[in-house]
Nucleic acid binder design. Structure first.
Lengths: 193, 193, 193, 193
DNA sequence: GATGAATGAGTATTCATTCAT
DNA sequence: AATGAATGAATACTCATTCAT
């Protein structure tokens, strides 16, 4: 039942955002009465937090699953891109309504940081053991990842809902092209200008 | 008077966001009664739109002023970064409260698109006349700019308010490093790995 | 308008008590919309306090007016009884609903204490200047007054609403008889047994 | 089990009063689930009535036990005062929360009437057989008792909870002094002024 | 134009009560 | 008998908006 409520909450919060969503909507979406929601969650905010947390969890778990990969760096990065954008495509409906309100409540930064960390681990040169963990290069890479993750998430979430999914592909290509420019991705190296 | 209201609205919306801000707060911030706001703006949404629009306007005008530059590409890009981050630093307080709500109302994408366009014009290789305007390379560059602009804006807006300004510098350095990697910015070329 | 709301509040709180009374009832009793009550009072509790305070104020002012009397002790006491029970008769409807809830909020003790003080000043032997203010006799008199004031107020408030007014007369007679027994009131001294 | 529930109800109603007390609190205080209360009592009001009734019962039984005394009048009255205030001291916690709400439901007047009757029987001159039961003197005595019983109960219940017990002693002394004035109690006759 | 009192629709939350297990 | 999840009615309070002055 708790899961049904979360599911309904993700759906409705995702569509309307926090404030405009009423507890009654969520309850009826879960097929229960409004009072029953309070059996499982203390209040609207608690439910929202739980919904956001649950949404991110799926997202992060998928990404962290890539950690196990033992392929070489280029392959790992390619897989990361494929998998990351695929997960993003599914999560898009939730993101649209929850990213902004969750941001204001500080529920997003820690999750994004985890995502960035997971990505950094995949992208980091293999001999990273030799890399000073807070050397300038490592910091810049980390910050660039931060910028790009935020950029992809929000650029995707901001697009029109109907075309959001299709709008992801060009973004992916752009990232791929950039990585090729760095020699970090396979395919013809497009010399950037 | 209209300007005073806008000014107050930018300040209060920026601090609290759309929903939690009351018309009375804005009115009293502008030194008038709540009813008088409706002499100048049709309703709360209209005022918000006007405030957002006004806020972006300053931002965009600053960036577009760089168009006039006749310096070489590297210099232009260096100026763009300096000026862009400087403007961003000033605009940060507004961004925090308005970016998210404005996004949901679709007030942001057009503005960001204009920003990206302005940046693209500055970054584009000089002989861009020879570039197919929708060639693959141009598209990728454009999309990469889109991602990075979104990324910088939202990463900045999401940070803690007190440390937001300082958090910008590392982001700027990361962008600089990336551009150097592409040979698009001066300074020692840090070969990316 | 504030006065109209207080008036309505006294009436409705008096009939139903605090909790069962709704803000809407009070508002409609005052001929305004429910939201307008909040223009004048911060919340239901604040309104209740104001109503109680206003109700007591009338009561106490009447009693304290007797201070000015320069008649002899017996006459003063007779007037006190007459006036006190007359005021009580008018205040009875308010008392019924407000005494209990107000008690729980501590809004009553201070007022009752003022009433008792006023009565003590009237009842005190004329040469009270010679009386030790906290001598045993003075304390006992003060406490007896306290008991009797509480007793009269609550015995009156507890009676059936319809017969409450008539039920006051026997109480008054009983007090009178007691005072006569003490030689503190005129009329045939009924020797108590 | 019924007794355990009553016990818990007396405790919780006594602390919080009727409205703020929840069935869940009472149930958990009795070590059962909230639903189970309804096996023994029809609803919250019925439980409250039962609790009030049970509380008074103890109180009244104690007083009525004094009926059996065959001592003389002065001794009976002295015992009545001692015993009555002792019982009151124990019952104080219950009174605080239940007197007011019970009053409004009319659950108190009958009990107080019984208490007053018991007291009257003890205080009445011994040759009361010769007294016209509704003669003026008897009526005044009865009403004075009514006033004083109400007065003592409510004055006690209204005091601050922590100091309630100590506050009883002065009240008792005041009653004693009054009775002495009437020659109804032993000790040095303090001539009232 | 300005005011601000009045409006009243809108919503989270509580809790007595029920009833399937 | 006992449970406690589910119910859903009930209500204080907020605030954008209006409009008489």
């Amino acid at each position: 039942m708790e899961a049904r409520i979360i599911e309904s909450a993700i759906r409705v919060f995702g569509e309307r955002g926090f404030q405009p969503t009423t507890m009654r909507e969520i309850a009826s979406g879960a097929g229960i009465s409004s009072g029953s929601v309070y059996t499982y969650f203390p209040d609207k905010n608690g439910l929202f937090r739980a919904a956001v947390s649950s949404g991110w969890e799926r997202f992060i778990l998928e990404l962290e699953a890539l950690k196990e990969l033992r392929e070489g760096r280029e392959e790992r990065i390619a897989l990361l891109l494929d998998r990351g954008f695929a997960v993003l495509r599914e999560a898009l409906p939730l993101l649209r309504g929850m990213l902004f309100d969750a941001s204001r409540q500080g529920l997003v930064e820690p999750s994004i940081a985890r995502v960035c960390g997971a990505i950094d681990a995949l992208v980091r040169p293999d001999q990273s053991g030799m890399e000073a963990p807070d050397g300038e290069q490592a910091l810049n890479r980390r910050n660039l990842i931060t910028i790009m993750v935020h950029g992809i998430l929000f650029a995707a979430a901001l697009g029109e809902p109907e075309r959001a999914a299709e709008a992801l592909e060009p973004l992916k290509q752009a990232v791929l092209a950039m990585l090729r420019g760095y020699g970090m991705a396979g395919g013809p190296r497009a010399r950037p200008r």
